[in-house]
């Protein structure tokens, strides 16, 4: 299936969970939130939510600065 990650098209094998995608991308889950189709996915659902063809994923860095 084709998904978009940070604006770039990617072909991935279905089925794939959010946790699986993070592993594929080599991203540790501790520093980012995952946005799927304009919704932040609860971290506790990373293993249970499967991606669908056409999903738009954004990796959102946690930021805590007050500048």
């Amino acid at each position: 299936m084709k998904i978009t990650v940070n604006g770039e098209d990617r072909h991935v094998d279905a089925p794939l969970t959010i946790a699986g995608l993070l592993a594929n991308l080599g991203i540790a889950g501790g520093k980012v939130a995952i946005e799927r189709n304009l919704e932040i996915v609860p971290k506790s659902a990373y293993d249970s939510i499967g991606l669908n063809d056409g999903d738009r994923i954004e990796i959102v860095q946690f930021i805590g600065g007050g500048a």
């Binding site: 540790a28 501790g30 520093k31 939130a33 932040i40 609860p42 971290k43 946690f62 805590g64 600065g65 500048a67």
Partner: peptide, 25 residues
């Protein structure tokens, strides 16, 4: 806590080390 479930690993990297654009603040 639903946005940031735990303190990120690299919490030491703040604007003092990474820089920040004033107009964004």
């Amino acid at each position: 806590r639903s946005l940031v479930p735990a303190v990120p690993d690299d919490d030491g990297e703040d604007c003092a080390t990474l820089g920040t654009m004033g107009a964004v603040a």
